[in-house]
Amino acid sequence: MTQTILITGCSTGFGQASARLFAARGWNVIATMRRPEADAGLSNLPNVLVTRLDVQDPASINSAFAEGLVRFGQIDVLVNNAGFGLFGVFEETAREKVLEQFAVNLFGLMDVTRALLPHFRARRAGTIVNISSGAGVFTLPMISLYCASKFALEGFSEALSYELAGLGIGVKIVEPGGVTSTSFGQRSGTEAAAAAAIPDYVPFVAASNAVFADLRAARANATSEDVAEVIYAAATDRTDRMRYVATDDIKPLVAARRETSEAEYLAFMRARVTPKLG
Score class of each variant (00 low, 15 high):
170 G>T: 15
55 V>C: 04
60 S>K: 05
128 I>Y: 09
137 V>L: 10
84 F>T: 06
139 T>V: 14
105 N>Q: 09
123 R>S: 10
122 A>Y: 09
151 F>P: 05
69 L>A: 04
144 S>I: 00
50 V>K: 02
139 T>I: 08
180 T>N: 07
72 F>V: 02
50 V>P: 02
146 Y>V: 03
175 E>G: 02
127 T>Y: 07
130 N>F: 00
149 S>F: 07
88 G>E: 12
178 G>M: 14
72 F>L: 01
77 V>Y: 12
135 A>I: 07
139 T>C: 02
126 G>S: 06
73 G>K: 07
120 F>L: 06
134 G>W: 05
162 Y>E: 10
174 V>N: 05
180 T>M: 13
59 A>V: 05
105 N>L: 04
115 A>L: 02
175 E>P: 00
51 T>H: 11
98 V>Q: 05
74 Q>V: 02
45 L>W: 07
81 N>W: 08
160 L>N: 14
186 Q>A: 15
61 I>Q: 09
182 T>N: 10
136 G>Q: 01
185 G>I: 01
180 T>C: 01
123 R>E: 10
147 C>V: 04
107 F>D: 01
100 E>F: 08
141 P>W: 04
115 A>F: 06
165 A>P: 00
76 D>C: 10
63 S>Y: 07
91 E>L: 14
50 V>Q: 07
107 F>C: 00
74 Q>H: 14
97 K>I: 06
131 I>G: 11
94 A>D: 14
144 S>G: 15
174 V>W: 03
150 K>G: 02
162 Y>W: 08
166 G>V: 00
164 L>V: 09
46 P>F: 11
164 L>R: 03
115 A>E: 03
82 A>S: 07
140 L>W: 14
147 C>E: 12
90 F>V: 12
173 I>R: 02
177 G>I: 03
183 S>W: 07
71 R>V: 09
160 L>T: 06
139 T>N: 13
173 I>M: 15
142 M>N: 04
159 A>R: 00
75 I>P: 03
68 G>H: 04
